[in-house]
Computed example of a mutant assay.
Amino acid sequence: MKTKISQADLGQWEKWKTERDPDAGNYLVEKYHHLMDYVIQRFMISLPKTVQKEDIQSYAYEGMLDAIDKFNLDGEFKFETYAAWRIKGAIIDGLRQSDWLPRSVREKVKKVEKAYAVLEQRNGTSASDEEVCTYLGITKAELNKTVSEAALSSMISIDETIQDDENDQVGRYNVIKNEKAESPEAHLYAQLLKESLAKAIELLPEKEKLVVTLCYFEELKLTEIAEVLNLSVSRISQLHSKAMLRLNAAILSVQENY
């Protein structure tokens, strides 16, 4: 259910919507600034060190301004939900436009995902770094470099924005028509995917499983996870990336075998 906006905040919203009052705009940006911080933290766990946090903050700010400008006070969603989506989209668009991940790296990521899928399906256990390196014929350093750049590449591919009927950008997954909706085939596919992901999470090495749990179920920030596990932030980022590669591999297996 939509959260009721206080009278004080509603007054600021109306000033911005009707008058474009700069003070009202500044008030709204400051009030919801924590949303930018939250989304940025969630992204930084997946980004390689080559991406500057200042750039992500700039993209997030653009997303916040866009959300404030386009938010419908009478709409269905809470502003927090709408703004988080807009901020995320702005960051993804900014990263894509900056071409931060070359095609050659994307191809390497796909090869690593494929390696995890083949090895873990074959052995029924989590593939070790050594097994993946041997399978691909690469060094541990090459694997670690690919892992550090891997997680967000799949997210950007899924979240690629397109234009909707009102010339507004939306995520591709939001507008793809589901030809099998409510069909037995769709239900079976969803069930297989759910079971595969559950099994993949269960098979994750203990530290990777902890990072996934703390990140997506407890919703802790990167720095908080590092503190809980008494590890460096960069180590948490690496564990997260490896876990995402394994889970993406599980999805890939279902798609190829369905």
Score class of each variant (00 low, 15 high):
G94H: 03
I45M: 15
L231S: 09
F43P: 01
I92C: 03
F217H: 14
E195L: 13
L247N: 01
F77T: 11
K221Y: 12
T81Y: 10
L197C: 03
L10K: 09
S232D: 15
D99M: 06
S46K: 12
F77W: 12
V147W: 02
V233W: 09
M244R: 08
S183M: 08
E208C: 07
N257D: 12
L95T: 00
R172V: 04
V228A: 06
I176P: 02
S128V: 05
I251C: 08
A117T: 04
L95N: 01
F77Q: 15
V109Y: 02
I92N: 02
W13H: 04
A226G: 15
Q169W: 13
N257Y: 06
V112H: 01
K49N: 10
F79D: 03
K2M: 02
A67F: 08
K242N: 10
F71R: 03
D129Q: 13
D129V: 09
Y32M: 06
V51G: 01
F77C: 06
L152C: 05
I156G: 03
K15T: 00
I56S: 00
Y27L: 04
G63W: 04
L35A: 00
K145I: 06
S157L: 14
D74T: 07
V212M: 14
G89N: 14
V118T: 12
M64P: 02
Q163M: 14
V105K: 06
K110N: 08
V29Y: 07
E219T: 08
S253V: 10
Y61W: 12
A141T: 14
A141Y: 09
V228W: 05
A83Y: 02
L204E: 07
T139R: 09
E54S: 13
T3R: 12
N257L: 08
E227A: 14
G89C: 06
Y116L: 05
T81N: 12
D23S: 12
E202R: 10
M36L: 10
Q163T: 07
R122K: 14
V118L: 06
H240M: 11
R235F: 15
E30S: 15
S253Y: 04
E160F: 11
S234Q: 15
Q97I: 05
D159W: 13
E113P: 00
A127M: 05
L119Y: 05
K17E: 04
G75R: 09
D74H: 11
L35W: 01
A24S: 09
E256D: 12
V29P: 00
K209N: 10
M155C: 04
D9E: 15
Y189M: 13
S128A: 07
S6K: 10
Q169Y: 14
S183V: 04
L245S: 00
V211M: 07
I92Q: 04
I5K: 01
Q191S: 15
A250K: 01
W16H: 03
K242M: 09
A60H: 01
A60F: 03
E166S: 11
P22S: 04
E62M: 12
K78D: 15
R246W: 01
L220D: 09
T134L: 14
D23V: 08
D69K: 14
F77E: 15
K110H: 05
R42A: 06
R86S: 08
A190N: 15
D159L: 12
A250L: 07
D37S: 07
L65N: 12
T146D: 06
L231G: 00
K110V: 07
L193I: 05
